[in-house]
């Protein structure tokens, strides 16, 4: 199996897990679930219009639906007084259903099928190659987008570290000193949607959720401070995707599925170990 596929998986897992960390810290993990389902119609529609995948159009379409999802969740909650989690549930099931209908209706035109929506096509996308800018490397087609997404995530994280920290920890205090909570809320959900969209095609809806939530939740169990949690998050994301990748190849099963399962096992192990070494535990 190609080494680029593994590198690609690692890069995706890094951007997903870092972007997801702030959803987890804000107790909005299920929003990752929602966004990862909700972007599907955007992908399909943009594909139908532009006629090709992996274009800025597709990205724009998906981002639009990511924001539509966040907006609708808030709208149903505020204006119609639907409970918070029901609002999430209604929004993403509906958008996802709409996407699936589009996929099955235009199955011939759209190079996506129901299978790919779930599993992603990380191995398949490796078949189409292109030059990585300024190098001799032949890399999978979607690889370049993933790299730039990771760069963007890291940049937002470094520049916005303090804003993300204070608004996640104590929104009321943050707004009392004049920091806009809305801006940081939409920034963190916006980054999460962007990452979802870029990763969706490669790894499918479910692994996106797993990557966004599980590594940071695992890291949170054994971290005292935010920087510590963030680097541990990246460690768990990398170990999970490497172990999952080789296990999947050895068993000849879905790579995305195996990585998600391995991340779950990692989490369970940390939780168990932490419990048995309670006297040394941090929390």
């Amino acid at each position: 199996m190609n080494i680029w596929v593994l590198i690609h998986a690692i890069i995706i897992s890094l951007s997903c897990s870092l972007a997801g960390a702030f959803l987890v810290l804000r107790h909005r993990a299920m929003l990752a679930d929602a966004i990862s389902h909700a972007v599907l119609p955007g992908l399909v529609i943009a594909f139908l219009i532009t006629g090709s995948r992996n274009t800025p159009g597709m990205l724009a379409g998906a981002i639009a639906f990511g924001f539509l999802c966040i907006f609708l969740v808030e709208f149903f909650k505020r204006k119609v007084k639907v409970t918070d989690d029901a609002s999430i549930g209604i929004t993403f099931t509906s958008l996802f259903a709409f996407g699936i209908i589009l996929v099955s209706k235009y199955a011939e035109q759209v190079d996506l099928d129901q299978e790919c929506v779930l599993h992603g096509e990380i191995t398949f996308s490796a078949l189409q190659r292109m030059h990585f800018p300024f190098t001799q490397w032949m890399v999978p087609n979607t690889f370049v987008t993933s790299v730039f997404t990771l760069l963007a995530v890291v940049l937002v994280l470094l520049a916005g570290y303090r804003g993300l920290f204070i608004t996640s920890f104590h929104p009321e205090y943050a707004s009392s000193i004049g920091i806009s909570i809305g801006f940081w809320h939409y920034l963190s959900s916006g980054v999460a949607s962007m990452v979802t969209i870029v990763s969706f095609e490669a790894v499918g809806a479910i692994l996106v959720i797993a990557l966004m939530v599980i590594p940071s939740a695992t890291a949170w169990l054994i971290s005292r401070r935010l920087p510590e949690m963030l680097w541990k998050t990246t460690m768990f994301a990398i170990t999970g995707s490497v172990a999952g990748f080789y296990l999947a190849i050895w068993l000849n099963v879905s790579i995305a599925g195996t990585i998600a399962a391995v991340l779950g096992v990692q989490f369970a192990m940390v939780l168990i170990l932490k419990g048995s070494f309670r006297h040394r535990s941090i929390h």
């Binding site: 107790h27 993990a29 679930d33 692994l207 599980i214 939740a217 999947a248 879905s254 991340l263 779950g264």
Partner: peptide
């Protein structure tokens, strides 16, 4: 809600392997 997201995605991943 975090616990749900963890279990949901890990179990579903296992299901996809099967």
């Amino acid at each position: 809600s975090t616990a749900m997201a963890i279990v949901l995605s890990a179990f579903f991943g296992l299901g996809m392997m099967l």
